[in-house]
Design a protein around this nucleic acid. Structure first.
Lengths: 330, 330
DNA sequence: TATAAAATGTTAAGCGTTTATCATAATTAG
DNA sequence: CTAATTATGATAAACGCTTAACATTTTATA
């Protein structure tokens, strides 16, 4: 591949002028610029980001470390981040940890070896974050945070999401509310649950611990738990499901049992279901401002890259309750 | 961040020895190796991939250019590729084209600027591939190919998938078979349809063009088309849906109309449905060897990187028909 | 202990850029 | 036409590593 020298030669200017055009186009005059551009075209020249990175100590690339792009929430978020970052001339190195602490650590170090300018991470282990801090790495946390760590982050206000959803169910007259939740020690899940608790307490409703179902992460577990739950003598009148996949498992199980939503049980879900647009009844659900989660994440890391000592930012974004037809007044 | 010089100094060896350890560990003896490793640890040293890349003219990174990670098929594939590539010490720069030719072109050039060792691409525009060829870029095509282009590729044998699925439906006695297809000019879709045609012709069944429904890409269109299709006087006895999202749209529409699968209509889908594991009836579907698509893609590009003149590889992988309960004999 | 082999060091160039400094040339203004 | 501006050039060092060639030291072997 052609180098800057080849371009200079072909355009009959010095390499310095070419470099100037690349980095400070305003200081080279129109004629030269044109000659150089022409030479670049002809040679299919693309300045080596590698060499530039080395010289400028800036790679213009971001490391994105997340649990799993297969997860619909994360892949939507990633796309938003990518789109926004691309506009700002950043590329992304992507890796998936599967919530495995060792992978997470390994990948973080890999990103550092690549000298990414910053890391955007949806973390799993606190230890990883402590390492990031102590190694002086610039980074921002997304979605999952650690309350006692003084770092930049942007996340949905999961507590509020859980709270408002629950209040909504209560306002419809529901008292026996079941919860399909995931890994309780992960921030979003824990917060949503706290929100749920608060709403229940505030309104003086006793939480029935037997109706708090732990469903891991996938729809299979939620499906099984639902079968068990809905075949009890005393069924819940409403179910609050903590993510889209669980909602799916719930719906399927309920259908098989021969019950219907919302006549027999109301459903309120967190996040969307893949292909949800056509589901009937439309499920009432809490959505997260995914686009903003991507854009804030970028803005924050960009800011931090610009000045290491810029003020710390901790942003909680408001979730939104989308009312469908899956919850009824009782 | 510490450099190789700092390490050398701390370990009281020359930089060359450190470099040797990094690149040809077999030539440095155990004691020195240990000293150096210790120094690296203490300094949190990570060799700069940037500097290494520049010196070695090798980045050990792959550019992955694909339509959209949000697509369940692609994100599964990407994960397989990532996992396998990581084992072989490759990192991945990822970008999504949304099947926009201009984005595709821009991203390809971006990858080149980053001097990726190779590009793995699920292409959209033929023009992009022609550019790749003429610029001497090393690359492999995945899933979507151009038959008249002499390049490395790995893809599912979509023709065979379409053919075998159709033969299966025919073997169950179906004659009025409808197809929910997507963008016909994209290779997989076109091939699946050709396979369908061949099977129909071979068995002397007339294709009813009115039952070939174009559904774009999303479940919404498939949903609408299904509603139209299934409300006709003469309904198909079976439907062959070309992807998971469409199957979803179909299922929902059929349910709403009040028909059931497979009693009123059989369904055979290509690819899986998100959360399909719990769907009842289990839908009969053709699956692609996603893992192999990832691993072959990597092996091929790795081979090509090793020797530019290695023999061209064009691989068609066998799809697999998974029989569920969504198709019945009539 | 002499000799061969293995490990390390020294030096230097190179990868493709950027950037600073200073000098010179071209253009514009007065 | 001269002085002030503006644009370019020449030169060189730097970014952090690799690699080759050769010299020297250390270790193992006979």
């Amino acid at each position: 591949m052609a180098t800057i020298n080849d371009v200079a030669e072909k355009a009959k200017v010095s390499v310095v002028t070419v470099s100037r055009l690349l980095n400070h186009p305003e200081v080279v005059n129109a004629k030269s610029a044109e000659k150089i551009h022409k030479a670049m075209e002809e040679l299919h020249f693309q300045p080596s980001q590698i060499a530039r990175s080395l010289a400028k100590r800036r790679t213009n690339t971001l490391g994105v470390v997340m649990p799993d792009v297969k997860n619909p929430f994360f892949n939507k978020w990633f796309r938003c981040l990518e789109e926004y970052a691309t506009i700002h001339q950043f590329s992304m190195l992507l890796c998936n940890t599967d919530d495995d602490p060792e992978k997470e650590m390994r990948y973080i170090k890999l990103m550092q070896a690549h000298r990414v300018d910053g890391i955007v991470i949806v973390p799993y282990a606190k230890k990883s974050i402590e390492y990031l801090i102590k190694s002086g790495q610039k980074f921002v946390l997304v979605d999952r945070i650690f309350k006692d760590l003084e770092v930049d982050f942007v996340t949905t206000d999961h507590f509020r999401g859980g709270y408002e959803a629950t209040r909504y169910l209560i306002s419809l007259g529901h008292r026996r509310i079941a919860v399909l939740r995931g890994e309780g020690y992960i921030f979003p899940d824990a917060e949503r649950y706290s929100g749920f608790q608060k709403a229940m307490q505030e309104t003086g409703i006793q939480i029935d611990e037997n109706m708090i179902m732990n469903c891991g992460l996938d729809e299979g577990k939620a499906y099984q738990q639902t079968k068990e739950l809905m075949n009890r003598e005393e069924r819940p009148t409403a179910v609050f499901s903590f993510n889209g996949l669980m909602s799916l498992g719930f719906i399927q199980a309920v259908q098989e049992i021969g019950l219907s939503i919302p006549q027999d049980v109301s459903l309120l879900g967190f996040d969307e279901i893949q292909g949800y647009g056509i589901f009937r009844p439309k499920v009432t659900h809490v959505i997260q401002p995914i686009k903003s989660l991507g854009e804030f994440a970028f803005d924050m890391i960009a800011e931090r890259i610009k000045k290491a000592d810029s003020v710390r930012q901790q942003i909680f974004l408001k979730p939104l309750l989308i009312v469908g037809d899956s919850c009824i007044q009782i």
